[in-house]
Nucleic acid binder design. Structure first.
Length: 591
RNA sequence: GCGCCCGUAGCUCAGCUGGAUAGAGCGUCGGCCUCCGGAGCCGAAGGUCAGGGGUUCGAAUCCCUUCGGGCGCGCCA
């Protein structure tokens, strides 16, 4: 339970009492009332803006409303101090017992601490990665994969029912290009083309994908089909070659993602949607709604394409739903555009009953979000929200120097390379240390360094230290039950140092952080919070070095030691809880 | 030309959806650290939140505008 919402409820109850007393008008809107930790801890444990928000509609001055409200809050159990400050804030200080109760709750809940009900079972579809099945994953994909997976984990913790989904673009020109490249490798496997021939085809742009990873695919086709597909016209071989190539590439992608610890609940095939007639059905439905028409688009101003000519097109009325222009759904050869398929796909998601849709895309798809949101508005009747998280570039560095990457030279870094080099947990955590729309530096040297400015290490080190304290305690008191449940029953009221209480308050803020991060769809907040917790814990640890009285374990004072161990265990619990969202394994010791 | 994202300390970045005196790490400067549970501790300096205007009790946060950077802009996915 988020203690801040608990106290918000208390504040609202007192507001209701003031309504009953006639101080406030009937039916006053309390939606904007908040209870939050104040920026400056000197102001107390919690602050509410109630008086400032409610004063105006009540025709009062904030401070005139704050006084009677503060008087009522002061009478509440657990509240030890209330004062009115600044423009009308009401600051409250809570009895230590309240915070200690949070710590006990944390220990009893274990890593489930922070679980929330705000999702209320709403169904959320998180679509991420969705890379074309034309090759192995590279680092750019890794960020989207981690952000999507962690966001999904965060939403699950907040009480949403989450589906992790991958949209397979297996119907367009890209996979035909893949098939052509594989066909060349197939002929190479049969000895009919040399490596130089392939290089020549690449140079002449007859094929688009030249990577070695297609060599075994070509060989597999040779094994299955012999030379029967080698000299036939493209029409005869492109189907089977493409299908086989896509299947192999998807296996590669699944393996790469598995190495990152990412898996999906659903893979949706674009081709399957087309073949099931869903694109036709969607367009027919939109036509019925009067949302499809034939028209001529204006050329984009200032940057007219050379070959621009006005031409009637089949268009979707995206501008009715907030987009800048209406969008074409059909190519001049009569086939559907990629967008038409995406319309059908998003309609399909809506029909599967999701309440919220989230797409994680690369930043280069920014120009695509308005039209997708327009589609979702149109097919969801305004009841389904689509949020698109755009992930910026990852800059790979080594000791501050850019890692040279070139597709042509074959030196581009794959997801697998990175995971093999630093481990999946490091990749996952680091990818979440920036908000998704900011570029991220990934420095091989830095992310494995043992130092304060490497957040993965810093957080893991805190967890390992906490486990180490527990180990020492077990050695000191071998017969004592030191399980978290037992520690929850310890005399935690012996925790009275300001630093200790500050850390407890920080841990007590975890449920609130989960909720706000989930609502904002911002998993990176968890990373910063964990670094804060680690920092506070390391600080406390260090104090014990200067002052033996502040050490966690005092061999002569078992009761106090157990209380402090409870706090240490709380730190470990919250870190484990946060890392679980990230899909990162908390370590018990550093290697 | 239009749309979206971004601009916060010397550097890298937070800033809880509009709250109080804008924070952290690194770096810099000044001290401490010969022994505790390894990879440090305390303190200081450092800001026109890119500039300007607006909304209101209150703006880094919302609106307008200028400047600067990134991405995108009819049948590529």
């Amino acid at each position: 339970m988020n203690i801040f919402t608990t106290y918000r409820d208390h504040v609202l109850a007192e507001v209701a009492a003031l309504v009953a007393a006639g101080t406030l008008p009937e039916g006053i809107d309390t939606a904007r009332v908040t209870v939050e930790p104040p920026r400056d801890p000197a102001h107390g444990d919690m602050a509410t803006n109630a008086a400032m928000v409610l004063a105006k509609p009540a025709g009062l001055k904030p401070r005139d409303l704050a006084e009677p409200l503060a008087a009522r809050l002061k009478a509440m159990t657990g509240v030890v101090e209330v004062d009115v400050a600044g423009p009308g804030f009401i600051n409250m200080r809570l009895a230590p017992a309240i915070w200690l109760g949070c710590l006990r709750q944390c220990l009893r809940a274990g890593p489930a601490y922070g679980d929330s009900m705000i999702g209320n079972g709403r169904r959320v579809n998180v679509e991420f990665v969705s890379a074309n099945p034309t090759g192995p994953m590279h680092v750019g994909h890794a960020r989207g994969a981690v952000v999507g997976d962690a966001l999904a984990g965060l939403l699950e913790k907040a009480g949403f029912r989450v589906t992790r989904e991958y949209y397979v673009n297996d119907a367009g020109a890209q996979v035909d290009a893949l098939a052509r490249a594989v066909h060349a490798r197939y002929r190479q496997a049969l000895g009919r083309l040399s490596e130089d021939d392939i290089a020549g085809m690449l140079a002449r742009k007859e094929i688009e994908y030249g990577g070695d990873y297609l060599v075994p695919v070509g060989r597999a086709i040779a094994d299955d089909h012999g030379d029967e597909l080698a000299e036939k016209p493209e029409d005869a071989w492109i189907g089977p070659v493409r299908d086989r190539a896509i299947a192999v590439m998807l296996d590669v992608i699944r393996d790469d993602l598995a190495a990152l610890g990412v898996s999906f609940d659903v893979f949706t095939s674009e081709r399957a949607l087309v073949e099931a007639g869903k694109v036709d059905a969607t367009l027919a439905w939109l036509e019925e709604q009067g949302l499809i028409y034939t028209g001529v688009l204006e050329p984009p101003k200032g940057k007219t394409p050379e070959d621009w000519e006005p031409r009637p097109q089949t268009l979707f009325r995206a501008t009715d739903f907030g987009d800048d222009v209406d969008r074409p759904v059909r190519k001049s050869d009569g086939s559907w555009t990629y967008f038409a398929g995406d319309m059908a796909y998003h309609r399909d998601k809506v029909e599967r009953g999701f309440d919220d849709l989230i797409n994680v895309f690369g930043a280069d798809h920014g120009g695509y979000v308005k039209r997708l949101q327009a589609v979702v508005k149109a097919v969801g009747g305004g009841k389904v929200a689509l949020d698109v998280k755009l992930c910026q570039l990852v800059k790979l560095l080594d000791q501050g120097e850019p890692v040279k990457m070139s597709k042509r030279a074959g030196t581009f870094v794959t997801l697998r390379d990175v995971v093999d080099r630093v481990g999946k947990d490091v990749v996952r955590f680091i990818m979440l240390t920036r908000k998704n729309d900011a570029t991220l530096d990934f420095d091989f040297a830095k992310v494995t360094e043992q130092s304060r400015d490497n957040p993965v290490w810093y957080v893991q080190y805190a967890h390992a230290r906490a486990c180490s304290v527990a180990g020492h305690a077990a050695a000191l008191w071998p017969t004592r039950d030191l399980s978290p449940e037992a520690l929850a029953a310890a005399s935690v009221e012996l925790l009275e140092a300001p630093e200790e209480l500050e850390l407890i308050r920080l841990l007590a803020g975890w449920p609130r952080l989960v909720e706000s991060a989930a609502e904002a769809h911002e998993p990176h907040r968890v990373a910063y919070y964990l670094a804060d917790v680690a920092g506070a814990f390391h600080g406390l640890w260090t104090k014990g070095k200067d002052d033996a009285e502040l050490r966690f374990l005092l061999p002569d004072d078992e009761a106090r030691s157990l209380a402090r161990l409870a706090l240490v265990q709380g730190v470990a619990t919250v870190i484990a809880s946060g890392l679980q969202i990230f899909g990162v394994q908390p370590v018990r010791e550093l290697r």
